[in-house]
Design a protein around this nucleic acid. Structure first.
Lengths: 225, 225
DNA sequence: TTCTTGCATCTTGCATACGATATGCTTCAT
DNA sequence: ATGAAGCATATCGTATGCAAGATGCAAGAA
């Protein structure tokens, strides 16, 4: 489940070969998500070339990739800027996510194998352990991973792709987002309900909970955007 | 409604300035949609550079853009290929479209101005005129335009963006797709129903019809993919 | 003082060159 | 005859250079 493999690689693991512009895109993506590149900020190619130690070609290709992900805007001849998310944008994304995850929930209940269910339940249990310790960051990561996994397992690859795209655009917001203890508890309760519905293979209910969960997420983050 | 302004430009109209890689991306996009670049075909950078008369830099930037639109796959060091749509991919896209347009229909009924409704009805009437003459291509274009416009008017920009992205990926399929007279008549009937629901501002019904319409579309095109 | 115009500098867009990697064919050994 | 290994060639990834356009500042006019 999207675990960073920090461990020792098996001897036969294929050695990772990544092109330079891929790595550059990832770095810039992280810089945006973690706020080192502020929304609305102009991206200076020369400065980034300097600090990353690459030439302009891979940097520019990376910028195109990020533009494709809607993380930046490229204005011809006038440089790139980090796209600014308005509250309306965030609400729109959550609304679409809610609709898509509702569909994913329905589909998942129809086709999930027992291994799929077990995997999600394991992730849920781990997340609850983090919640017990009020360990925000790992909780948050598993939370995202569970939603992503539901979309991946539902059998509709297009849905999964769009879901993860929106999710990553929202990452920055949720990363900052700070919840009150009650709001957090509510979110946890919704996750419990999801697991119940999944165990019962109740697609309609799972879809409904997922949609409600995401609409509530809007209330939980609306003041930080 | 997405009319190409072929007419005389007003004297103060800003002169269109498009970067080379934008134009290249558009050309290649058209080549893919119109089948001049077959699905699964390898894209030879040198050959395209030659035939388009540009250097590799803008071409490669265009390819990244297209990869962002999921029209091609870039395999590091091994070239780009036109992405092949399996029947499953098409079904997945239509399923997602159905869900999104259902939401769009609901939202539209809540917020549409009477001008919005009038615009859609005018487009519908024009489309029906083409149907009366069994004029396939203009019918098809207006059909797409109506769906796109519904997504645009619903007030959720993210939804509109995703809808148009999927729509353009499907263009190639529908472009080829040939319907039986009965299937066509059914599609027309569904469109009539949509307009009734819109006139009555019945969001639930409009959403339902849109979703049904798209699921039926799958039956109408499934044999051509 | 304020607005406009011209110039200098900074930044981006495109072209080209070179090194690295993949792919297909030929050759040799079994 | 069949398979593997090595080499040649095609193609890709990256760096760099140059020219065109954008931005900011200063000087002059109203």
């Amino acid at each position: 489940m999207q675990v960073e493999d920090e461990g020792i690689a098996p001897p036969t693991a294929l050695i990772q070969r990544r092109t330079l512009h891929e790595q550059v895109a990832e770095r810039i993506r992280d810089m945006i998500i973690e706020g080192h590149l502020a929304p609305g900020a102009r991206i200076n190619e020369a400065a980034l070339v300097e600090s990353l130690g690459v030439s302009r070609t891979p940097l520019r290709e990376a910028l195109r990739t990020l533009a494709g992900e809607n993380l930046i805007d490229i204005r011809p001849s006038r440089g790139s800027v980090v796209r600014r998310l308005t509250p309306g944008d965030v609400a729109s994304m959550l609304q679409v996510l809610a609709e898509l995850e509702k569909l994913a929930g329905r589909l998942l209940c129809e086709r999930a194998t027992s291994e799929d269910v077990a995997e999600l339940q394991a992730a849920h249990a781990a997340m609850m352990a983090h919640y017990a310790r009020r360990d925000r960051l790992p909780y948050y990561k598993l939370n995202q991973a569970i939603h992503t996994r539901i979309a991946q397992l539902c059998g509709n690859p297009v849905l999964a792709e769009i879901q993860s795209g929106i999710q990553s655009r929202l990452k920055r917001i949720r990363f900052i987002g700070n919840r009150s203890p009650e709001a957090w508890a509510n979110a946890v309760r919704e996750h419990e309900e999801m697991m119940e519905a999944l165990a019962a293979r109740d697609g309609a209910r799972l879809g409904e909970v997922l949609a409600r969960h995401l609409m509530n997420t809007w209330d939980r983050v609306r003041d930080v955007v």
